[in-house]
């Protein structure tokens, strides 16, 4: 993999940067890991059906759909508010998520598991690195755990979700942008050092992010 990402390779930007340590030697300021185990779907309430959908989500998952750009989670299922009456739903170890949501009958569901590449981000400098990339204030006074932002990072449409206080983040970009975004992330994080881990799910771990 590494040889494919050499800056000298004419198509190096079409390949994600390989797993491993990048940038400044030593302890990494940013620790990133691809996630391949998440089922993802968009959920949109039908006109006038918001209350029925909220009730169905509560009954099925014990999850209260957030009203704004926030995340709500319960029983391994998370809903991220992307727009009025529209959410991105993520779940681990629940491959039939989209079918389950469609079975609720209250909303329009689109399967997105292969549509998004997902990165979990942590490390002491992760906020500083993300602050370079997204034109939204990430200061803890105004952006904290559970907050979600749909925006563009380096002209790449992305959903950013602060998942923990340290802080930790989960970032979603379109699958076809995963390679380009990985180079953007490296460019931003190199001064602090970047540790990138594969999804680590066996031979198929690279599926969906174009690694190989």
């Amino acid at each position: 993999m590494a040889e494919m990402s050499s800056p000298a390779h004419p198509l190096s930007h079409t390949r994600p940067i390989p797993a491993g340590h990048h940038g400044r030697p030593g302890t990494a300021g940013v620790v990133a890991r691809w996630r391949e185990d998440l089922a993802i779907a968009t959920l949109a309430a039908r006109h006038g059906g918001e209350a029925a959908l909220a009730a169905a989500m509560d009954a099925a998952f014990g999850l209260a759909l957030p009203a704004g750009p926030k995340a709500a989670g319960a029983n391994g299922v998370s809903a991220l508010g992307l727009a009025p009456r529209r959410w991105l739903v993520l779940a681990s170890q629940r491959p039939a998520l989209a079918a389950e949501l469609a079975g609720l009958g209250g909303g329009a569901v689109t399967e997105q598991s292969d549509g998004y590449a997902v990165l979990d981000l942590a490390g002491p400098e992760v906020r500083a690195v993300l602050a370079k990339l997204v034109a939204v204030d990430l200061d803890p006074a105004v952006f904290s755990t559970g907050d979600v932002v749909a925006s563009s990072l380096a002209h790449i449409g992305a959903v950013l979700w602060q998942t923990g206080e340290e802080p930790t983040y989960r970032l979603l970009v379109g699958t076809s942008f995963a390679a380009a975004f990985s180079h953007t992330l490296l460019a931003a994080a190199a001064e602090y050092g970047l540790d990138l881990a594969d999804a680590g799910r066996g031979p198929e771990a690279g599926r969906g992010t174009g690694r190989g």
Binding site: G68, P69, P84, A135, V136, V149, A150, S151, S152
Partner: peptide
């Protein structure tokens, strides 16, 4: 109204 204050280049 939904996302908060954003740069005009997003629009």
């Amino acid at each position: 109204p939904f996302c908060g204050s954003r740069d005009a280049h997003e629009f």
